[in-house]
Design a protein around this nucleic acid. Structure first.
Length: 501
RNA sequence: GGGGGCGUAGCUCAGCUGGUAGAGCAAGGGACUUUUAAUCCCUAGGUCGUGGGUUCGAGUCCCACCGCCCUCACCA
């Protein structure tokens, strides 16, 4: 049994006292007439002491008993309001107040008015305990200053904030706002796609073969089938099968799982949007992505121009476009298609990468590294990087103008990848060769190489229409929209090591 | 995985070259009928992350472990 702090003991004593007096500590329901924000909006200054009567429910966020008068702050999901309680107006209810604590849920009914100090308040004639708080929330104390509210002694330990998100949310209205904004953004994206004829679908998370990206998977086991299953690393291959089946525009918003490192921009499970459109190519995807990203930002923030970390980001379409090859050439003078690998390695090591790591690189890996060093850090404004070298893009169609490249783009913002799209490879024989190549890499020890997916090849053989496909990391988009520096701040329950080792 | 930092009361933190713990807020008692971080008086509250070691003596020094943060690497 966990030992209780003296604070909790005091609260339990109060609970017992209330229950002994016939006051239930945990009520069943309460009819409120307004949210606190709605109630605040009802009041007009010409009402004087005769404001409307409302019923509100929420937590006690401040307690300031003053003898025959008690001030409480009541906070619900929308806002805070001060309660002004008088013994001569509450009668026997007033005795109950001394058994109420910070954080208790209460319902109150009374008239709105403005105090002499000018604070919009509620003057309750009834107070109902709705739920006792037996453990104090880690609240700070808020003071109004000339520059706005300042909170002292506030919960700040990131570990506690992520592990006990309920407490973090309860004491930080601004954290609740981040997740409200997230919900608004996602529902706007659904509407955007629905209006354009895209069908929202759900594909398997448990998969016998994983694919669609280069990543190590989580492995699990199905008892009844006695078989290994993988948590998906991407939706791609299942969604493209639907194009074969005649669902011409599909999308999915769901979690992918990648069994790799975690940091400020990576959580092991994360929310991905994938969109596929038949008879379209990557230029159509670029238009779609631009409209969607600019639209959702404008919907959430009311503007397309954002200040982020001292930099002004302008999401007004059209976004900048930079060719992968040209961008690298402008950055280091080398043409990735023709430059000797030695020269590419020198670019990488000159940028501070360890020489021995660079020596082991070759082919696509080396090209990717050159890009990361030369171009990626400069992609601050929303920028499409176009036409990736073929070795980097095993699921993308060969570029119609250059067999060394693929028709692919990635969208970068603030130096980070936000979206990835191609003209989808739909030639089953080509795809088979690429899978075979991946199988060879896998046999050579590359854990991230694709498995050979015979069923997917079979689907392509039936004939997949030409299509554009796009994937967008919802969490990273939310980091931009909500101006949060860590992916953990836009995920309600980020991955953490289990407590107690 | 490498490097750096952190872990002390319910919360935020202080604690020097080692001498067995402090503050503010929160809590309990008292005063107070318009407060705004209310104020004033009093009181209580701690296996100093865990386990070893050095020492007459460890929150402090050493070692190991656990957890979190930052950073590099890997990746995405």
């Amino acid at each position: 049994m966990e030992e209780r702090s003296y604070v909790e003991t005091a609260r339990r004593d109060k609970r017992a006292a209330l229950e002994a007096a016939g006051v239930p500590a945990f009520a069943y329901r309460y009819d409120r007439t307004h949210s606190v924000a709605e109630a605040r909006a009802l009041f007009r200054d010409d009402m004087g002491d005769e404001g409307p009567v409302v019923s509100l429910a929420g937590r006690i966020a401040r307690r300031a008993p003053q003898g025959k008068t008690t001030f409480l702050d009541l906070e619900d999901g929308s806002a805070k309001i001060q309660l002004y309680l008088r013994r001569d107006e509450l009668g026997e209810h007033y005795q109950m107040l001394e058994h109420l604590d910070l954080d208790d849920h209460v319902g109150v009914r009374g008239r709105l008015f403005r105090t002499q100090r000018g604070e919009l308040s509620l003057r309750p004639t009834e107070v109902t305990l709705l739920a006792k708080s037996l453990r104090p929330l880690p609240r700070g104390k808020t003071q109004a200053t000339e520059e706005g509210a300042v909170t002292y002694g506030d919960l700040s330990d990131p570990e506690v904030r992520y592990r006990q998100r309920y407490a973090d949310l309860a004491v930080h209205p601004e954290v609740r706002d981040v997740f409200r904004q997230r919900a608004r953004a996602i529902s706007w994206i659904r509407r955007f796609l629905d209006e354009r004829g895209f069908l929202e679908v759900e594909t398997p998370i448990l998969q016998p073969l994983y694919g669609g990206a280069a990543a190590r998977p989580f492995v699990t086991h199905h008892n009844a089938l006695d078989t290994e299953l993988y948590l998906r690393i991407a939706d791609e291959l299942y969604l493209k099968r639907l194009l074969v089946g005649g669902l011409e525009r599909v999308y999915e918003i769901g979690h992918d799982f990648r069994n790799e490192g975690m940091d400020r921009t990576h959580n092991p499970e994360f929310t991905m949007l994938e969109v596929y459109q038949a008879y379209a190519d990557y230029t159509d995807m670029m238009t779609l992505t631009e409209a969607m990203v600019a639209g959702v930002i404008e919907h959430c923030l009311g503007t397309r121009i954002l200040e982020r970390g001292g930099v002004t980001l302008d999401f007004t379409p059209p976004f900048r476009r930079v060719s992968f090859i040209e961008g690298v050439r402008a950055g280091c003078g080398l043409d990735l298609r023709t430059a000797p690998e030695e020269d590419l390695r020198r670019v990488v090591t000159d940028a501070g990468e360890p020489a021995d790591a660079a020596r082991e690189m070759g082919g696509g890996k080396l090209q990717d590294e050159v890009f990361k060093v030369v171009l990626e850090p400069h992609l601050v404004q929303p920028t499409f990087v176009l036409d990736y070298p073929k070795p980097l893009s095993p699921l993308a169609k060969e570029h119609r103008g250059d067999p060394a490249l693929t028709e692919r783009f990635e969208l970068f913002v603030g130096g980070r990848e936000l979206a990835n799209a191609f003209s989808e490879l739909n030639d089953p024989d080509d795809q088979r060769r690429r899978f075979e190549d991946q199988a060879r890499q896998r046999a050579a020890g590359n854990e991230e190489a694709h498995a050979f997916d015979a069923d997917y090849i079979r689907a392509l053989e039936y004939g997949m229409p030409p299509a554009g496909g796009m994937g967008l990391g919802i969490d990273r988009l939310m980091m931009v929209i909500a101006d949060q520096p860590s992916i953990r701040d836009v995920i309600l329950y980020p991955a953490m090591r289990p407590e107690e080792g």
